[in-house]
Design a protein around this nucleic acid. Structure first.
Length: 430
RNA sequence: GUGGGUGUAGCUCAGGGGUAGAGCAUCGGUUUGUGGUUCCGAGGGUCGCGGGUUCAAAUCCCGUCAUCCACCCCA
C-alpha cells in the first residue's frame, strides 16, 4: 500500500503547502473567480485521451511526447482489447482544441473564451515545482486575432498571479514571427547547420532533420556559434506590427514586461506572440505561467482556420509562491463557533447552528462536550470570526450572545431575531 | 536518463554498538461564563525496507525503495 512515485495526496492541515487541501481549495476558488471576472467559461475534458491527440497537437519530437508521456494499452480479460494507445494528458491545450472541434463550439459562438483546471501527467524526475501529476490552469481564446485579446490574456495572467499574493515576478514577451517567417527561419537554420556540420553532434542532426526550430530551442546553447539565425531577423512586417501593437497596449495599461528575443516555447504549435511569467524564488523551475498564439493548431486537427491564443499556469508553483497573507486567509473560513456551557444546552446550540447554516454561514459546533473555556479556546484556534455563547443567562432570556473575535465586541440577540440580526451584524463587519 | 544530499513520533530534528529523546502539534487537567504568549500531565515509534557482521544493530557494511536538490526539459 503505497503512493505511486511522483504523485501526492492533498489533505487538510498538511505541513507542506502544496499538500494542504485548505490552501488548495482557497487558491483554486480565487483563480476560478478571477477567470470568471474575465468571462472565461470552464471546459472539463477527460484526463485520458488517445495518444494521437497529443502527437498532432504538441509535436512528436518534443520531449513531452518522446519521453514524458504516460501511455498505455487497454487490458481486459487478460488481453489487449485493441491497438489504440491511450495516454494521460500531459497538457491542456490539445484536449481543449479536440473538444472545441468535436463539439462544434466554433459554430455555437464566433469567439470562445475557455478555461480548464485539473491534473496533467508527465513522466519525469520530480523536483521542486515539478511533479509527475501536477495541476494546471489554462485559459484559451479561440476564434479571434484581435490584438486586444492578446492583451486581455496577458493581463489576466498577471492578475491570476497577483491573486495568489505573488509580487516578485517578471513578464517576458517575444514574437517568433508568423508561419511564413518561421518557415524561412527553418530553412536558414538548415543552411546554417549544414555549413557547420563538423561541429554539430549527430544526435542534434536528428533534431534538425525533424524540426530545425527545435534545434534552436533545445540544443543551440551547447555550441558557441555567434551568427545564429534569429527569429527577429526573419520576422515579417505584419508580425512586427502586431508585436509593436501589443507592446504599446501593455505600456498604456501599465503592465510591466521585458522583451526577450531568446524566448521560444517548447511546444510546436506557437506563432507570433509568446510570453512567460517567471519568478526567481522558485528554484530551477522558474516559469509560473506561459503561453502564446497558436493559429495553426485547429487546422492541424482538421478544423477550420482559427486564430487562437492561450496560456497555462502551474498551480503547485502558484501555491509554492503564495504569500503568507493568502495562506492565512485560506484558514479564515469559519464565520461562527457555537459554544454551549452545559451538555443540556446542546440541542438549542444545534438549532442555532442549523439556522445559521441555512442562511449561508460557515458554522462550527463541537458535539462532544468539553468545558466552556476549552470551547472558546477552540474557537480561537480554529480562526472563527465570531463566537456565539449559549449559557444559563442566554437560555433564560431566550437569546444568544455574539462576540467579534478580533474586536472583542459583544452583542446579544433575541432567539427569534437570529436570522435578521446576524445578517445586520455581519454586514456591518464588511 | 545522469549526479549529489536525506530517511528516528503527525511535523522539525538530536542521538551514533548495550532500556528510544527534545521542541512544536494533538488530547486531558489547571478552569462548569470568555480566546491568542500561564503552568502540570498523557498518548503517540518494527529509528524507510531487506540482508550481512556481532553475544548484542536505530547505530557498522551491502543492497533496495522513497524523498529532496541540480542537470535535461517544462507549468
Amino acid at each position: 500500500m503505497k503512493l505511486i512515485k511522483g504523485f501526492r495526496d492533498i489533505f487538510p492541515y498538511s505541513d507542506n503547502v502544496i499538500e494542504d487541501s485548505v490552501l488548495w481549495n482557497f487558491i483554486e476558488k480565487s483563480i476560478s473567480s478571477k477567470l470568471e471576472n474575465y468571462n472565461f467559461e470552464k471546459i472539463i475534458t477527460p484526463i485520458i485521451e488517445n495518444k494521437t491527440t497529443f502527437n498532432t497537437g504538441i509535436g512528436n519530437d518534443t520531449d513531452i511526447i518522446s519521453k514524458e508521456m504516460y501511455e498505455f494499452l487497454l487490458y481486459k480479460d487478460s488481453q489487449v482489447t485493441n491497438d489504440i494507445i491511450y495516454c494521460l494528458r500531459p497538457e491542456g491545450t490539445a484536449s481543449t482544441v479536440r473538444s472545441y472541434l468535436e463539439n462544434s463550439l466554433f459554430k455555437r459562438r464566433k469567439i470562445n473564451k475557455l478555461y480548464y483546471m485539473g491534473p496533467m501527467f508527465r513522466y519525469e524526475r520530480s523536483q521542486k515545482g515539478r511533479y509527475r501529476q501536477f495541476y494546471q490552469v489554462g485559459a484559451e481564446i479561440l476564434g479571434s486575432k484581435d490584438i486586444f485579446y492578446e492583451f486581455e490574456l496577458i493581463s489576466l495572467g498577471v492578475d491570476l498571479i497577483k491573486e495568489t499574493g505573488i509580487d516578485d515576478f517578471v513578464v517576458e514577451i517575444n514574437s517568433i514571427g508568423d508561419i511564413n517567417s518561421l518557415n524561412k527561419l527553418s530553412e536558414e537554420v538548415r543552411n546554417f547547420t549544414n555549413k557547420n556540420k563538423e561541429k554539430i553532434q549527430d544526435s542534434d542532426f536528428e533534431i534538425i532533420n525533424k524540426n530545425p526550430l527545435r534545434f534552436l530551442d533545445k540544443a543551440i546553447h551547447k555550441y558557441n556559434f555567434e551568427d545564429i539565425p534569429k527569429s527577429s531577423d526573419f520576422i515579417s512586417s505584419d508580425s512586427k506590427l502586431r508585436f509593436d501593437e501589443i507592446i504599446n497596449l501593455l505600456d498604456k495599461n501599465n503592465i510591466k514586461f521585458n522583451i526577450n528575443h531568446q524566448l521560444v516555447r517548447g511546444l510546436d504549435y506557437y506563432n507570433d506572440l509568446v510570453f512567460e511569467i517567471k519568478s526567481d524564488s522558485l528554484g530551477a523551475q522558474d516559469t509560473i505561467l506561459a503561453g502564446g498564439r497558436y493559429d495553426k493548431l485547429v487546422s492541424k486537427f482538421g478544423g477550420p482556420e482559427t486564430f487562437c491564443v492561450g496560456f497555462a499556469a502551474g498551480i503547485e508553483r502558484l501555491i509554492l509562491l503564495s504569500s503568507s497573507d493568502v495562506r492565512k486567509k485560506a484558514y479564515e473560513r469559519i464565520d461562527f463557533y457555537v459554544a454551549y456551557q452545559k451538555p443540556d444546552f446542546k440541542e438549542f446550540a444545534n438549532e442555532v447552528c442549523s439556522r445559521l447554516r441555512k442562511i449561508g454561514f460557515n458554522v462550527l459546533i463541537e458535539y462532544e462536550f468539553k468545558n466552556f473555556v476549552k470551547q472558546i479556546k477552540s474557537a480561537d484556534k480554529m480562526n472563527s470570526k465570531m463566537l456565539i455563547t449559549i449559557g444559563e443567562e442566554e437560555m433564560n432570556a431566550k437569546s444568544i450572545k455574539i462576540k467579534d473575535m478580533s474586536s472583542g465586541k459583544e452583542d446579544i440577540i433575541k432567539n427569534k431575531n437570529i436570522e435578521k440580526d446576524i445578517k445586520n451584524i455581519s454586514n456591518n463587519e464588511k
